[in-house]
Design a protein around this nucleic acid. Structure first.
Lengths: 192, 192
DNA sequence: TGTTATCAAACGACTGTTTGTTGGGCGCTG
DNA sequence: CAGCGCCCAACAAACAGTCGTTTGATAACA
């Protein structure tokens, strides 16, 4: 089975779109095949199974988020600036790969044990990177001595939840959304 | 079909648990019936359809979240205190009705148009209550002049995302989680 | 006696996947 | 350049189930 071919990429794109819209289990191979004007059996010339489709979509998304934050970390900026960069990077990935990213958040749990484990490893690594940014900020005295797990969780929750409401067709760019969140997370609601 | 009976409540409880664990579409009537040592056909003496099960679970959860925040609003406290109360209330509902609440977040979109609309109305109302808290805080000068939609969205994202990671069996009480978030959202990360 | 809960069985539709076959296009050979 | 074999994508059909739901019968209980 070829890991890369234009037909295969088409199938992945259609699957990503349908998985996002209807969910993994509510999307049948029939649905995917129809969009490509194929018989559902014909898909199996290009892929091994439906689950393999899901894994590839989810795994690619995980990789993109991970790459994005590691770039922010390598920037050498201050923790506050890294936080802003990380928020921007996350929102940019979400905007650019909306289908893939949404499926990543919603459908990873339907993977069988072993594949799910591989995704969760990347997910944990991603969360760790966020915690490192917060921890570094506290260490340097740039941040208050907050619990780094909660600090990371707050930032991550804001952008993780965004796939529920953010639309690339809307008036806000990914960077604008990220900056709004960055301002709030850094300076809080309270008036001076 | 009786709207309330102990058998019906049992079915709803089992359905809620399975829908949370495996998702709506991956849970069959067979699965639900097995847990209750029934034939799957027998469920239909108590319910009209699988979708009705989903709707009732999701609708109850929506009602609970809505009640919780309206109680916080009616408390007459300052906006900052209302925000803390609202965060606590949300986390408490999540902890107490974990299955129902998780299904509410994850599976509402599988409802058919009309039922989905009724849920979305309650959801919108819930978001509006959060925005009102922020707006009131800004108005009174207790909060900085932030965009109330983003302020509400940040608080809501924090607690909405919590169903992914929060476990009532863990070491943290709902109030502790809520207070951690409240401190962060009110005062921000940045050192003075 | 009527009511209620449950059962076994069937309904038609759909599931993901495998199979054997076909036809077009490609490169190699004579 | 003609002809041959081969690859590749796609097809139709079937596999062995499972799906949600309906029906008619049957016990237990009021």
């Amino acid at each position: 089975m070829p890991r890369t071919s234009s037909r295969r990429e088409e199938i992945l794109a259609v699957a990503g779109e349908l998985f996002r819209q209807k969910g993994y289990h509510a999307t049948s191979m029939q649905d995917i095949a129809e969009r490509l004007r194929l018989q559902r059996g014909s898909l199996y010339a290009h892929i091994d199974s439906k689950e393999e489709l899901l894994f590839e979509i989810v795994d690619r998304a995980a990789g993109r988020f991970l790459d994005a934050i590691e770039q922010a970390r390598r920037s050498g900026r201050t923790p506050a600036e890294q936080l802003r960069l990380a928020l921007r990077a996350h929102m940019t990935v979400l905007a650019e790969y909306r289908d893939t990213a949404t499926v990543f958040f919603h459908e990873w749990r339907f993977l069988r044990e072993e594949l799910r484990r591989r995704i969760l490893e990347k997910r944990d690594l991603y969360e760790q990177r966020w915690r490192q940014i917060i921890a570094e900020g506290v260490e340097r005295g740039e941040f208050r001595p907050v619990d780094e797990r909660f600090g990371a969780l707050l930032a991550l929750s804001a952008v993780n939840w965004a796939y529920h409401w953010y639309s690339p067709e809307g008036p806000l760019s990914p960077e604008q959304v990220a900056d709004q969140f960055a301002d709030l997370i850094l300076d809080g609601l309270r008036a001076a």
